[in-house]
């Protein structure tokens, strides 16, 4: 096994199976994957930044409900932001945006994430791990959305706010429409998790 200075942080989706089910159901397009991945990443970073302050002020009994309240407030803020900048995607995602409050990524951060891996438990090293996990979540959510849209609908439609709503037609018709459904999402993510395990084995890495 490789031993480096930094602990190995597996991808939260492919290695930690965090947020697999909502992604399988909702991330069926590039825009949805981007908005969901970005939301989960931003909420988890904000939560991780606010938790030390909450630990310092709130008594133990109130910490859990307050942290959940902060998580809900962040999810609602993000939903409102998406309703302003990408209303069509926001409407399409429906309940999944407010659900960022309790999605597995937020819960994972509230429970301490991968910080038990750290030898030195400092705020900086904890934040670096959270940033790496958030980035990993965002990239995989984006990739899953892009692959499902490309294979399912034969197109790649960029959200209006990011690329002026550009629409890339890859093939005529829908080559593998199943991938755009939740069933296809589960199958794709299951296969991706297996592929990730093969890659980790080749790289002599182990999921902690």
């Amino acid at each position: 096994m490789k031993t480096g200075k930094d602990p190995f942080v597996p991808n939260p989706i492919l290695g930690g199976l965090v947020g697999v089910f909502p992604l399988a159901a909702a991330a069926y397009s590039l825009a949805n994957g981007l908005v969901l991945g970005l939301g989960a990443a931003l909420c988890s970073i904000a939560l991780a930044s606010l938790m030390p302050a909450l630990r310092a002020i709130a008594p133990d009994r109130l910490r859990a409900p307050l942290s959940l309240g902060i998580s809900a407030a962040l999810a609602l803020l993000y939903s409102d932001l998406i309703a302003l900048v990408a209303p069509v995607t926001g409407i399409g995602l429906g309940v999944y945006l407010p659900l960022l409050a309790v999605n597995s990524m937020s819960m994972h951060i509230l429970r301490g994430g991968h910080t038990p891996l750290l030898k030195e438990d400092s705020a900086t090293s904890r934040m670096i791990i959270v940033l790496r996990e958030a980035m990993g979540f965002f990239l995989v959510a984006l990739l899953i959305g892009a692959v499902r849209e490309a294979a399912g609908f034969g197109t790649l439609v960029f959200p209006a706010v990011f690329a002026n709503g550009a629409r890339l037609v890859l093939t005529k018709g829908a080559p593998l429409l199943l991938l755009a459904s939740p069933a296809g999402g589960f199958i794709l993510i299951g296969c991706s998790v297996a592929l990730y395990r093969v890659i980790l084995r080749k790289a002599a890495r182990r999921i902690p």
Partner: peptide, 23 residues
């Protein structure tokens, strides 16, 4: 089951197949 699919991956794929049956 092939080694990389053992455990969670094959269960996620199975969930997809059950979801397909309900479509």
């Amino acid at each position: 089951v092939p080694t990389p699919f053992r455990g969670a991956p094959i269960m996620i794929v199975s969930t997809g197949l059950i979801a397909m049956a309900l479509m």
